[in-house]
Amino acid sequence: MTPIPPHPPETAQTLNLTINGRQVSAQAGETILEAARANDIFIPTLCFLEGLSAQGSCRLCMVEIAGSAKLHPACVTRIQEGMEVTTETERLRDYRRNIIELLFSERNHVCAVCVASGHCELQDLASELGVDHISFPCRYPTLAVDASHRRFVLDHNRCILCTRCVRVCAEIEGAHTWDVKNRGIRSLIMADFDAPWGDSETCTGCGKCVHVCPTGALFEKGLAVAEMRKQRPALPTLVANRATEQR
């Protein structure tokens, strides 16, 4: 995980840059994503969640920077004086659409019968980016549902491996129940040392992972199709309050 602090150091100086041709200024140490959001410029993200460490793995927030041929993930790239950032180009849209299509093709997303349909970040982004079909052959893997927990369910079929659950559990709840096993396309979220969630000795049952999950991969038991509405916990406030208490 990229160890960049969620907040800029207190002694930060102000830097000037342009985003999509617009003059903006932000504090040194801030990321392009933070600078953009502070100025109401939308950059799509999936793995990023304010209040958690950024890891730049979903690649949806890729932007162009003048003078650099490669693309840069906005959530982990710090701003520099005079930077010229472009967040919307045909090339970026194409890449983003490809990423969404690949996510759909990798597992079994059937929105029509999904508990999160209508309240899903992946689904929202797909419609935002105009993804109306999947150009890649779907893999249709055989993946289990873990319904062993008393209150929650993990459905690997809808997991996009954003690891928000892993991070919120480790960084905010301090339980570190979740981790990723295997590698590459075989990667799966697992509880403890690959135990059924219901048998986990570390899980406190707080439900934060369920509510930060962008899709229907983690949800509350007993809810039917389209009923899972995620209440994103106010993580930055939580973190800030804790910091004050510790002082």
């Binding site: 029509a112 019968v113 508990v115 038991k221 809810l223 039917a224």
Partner: peptide, 14 residues
């Protein structure tokens, strides 16, 4: 098979 029963009314409706 393997799906949570809470999904069944909407799923089998399909």
């Amino acid at each position: 098979v393997g799906r949570p029963f809470f999904e069944m009314p909407a799923l089998t409706a399909r």
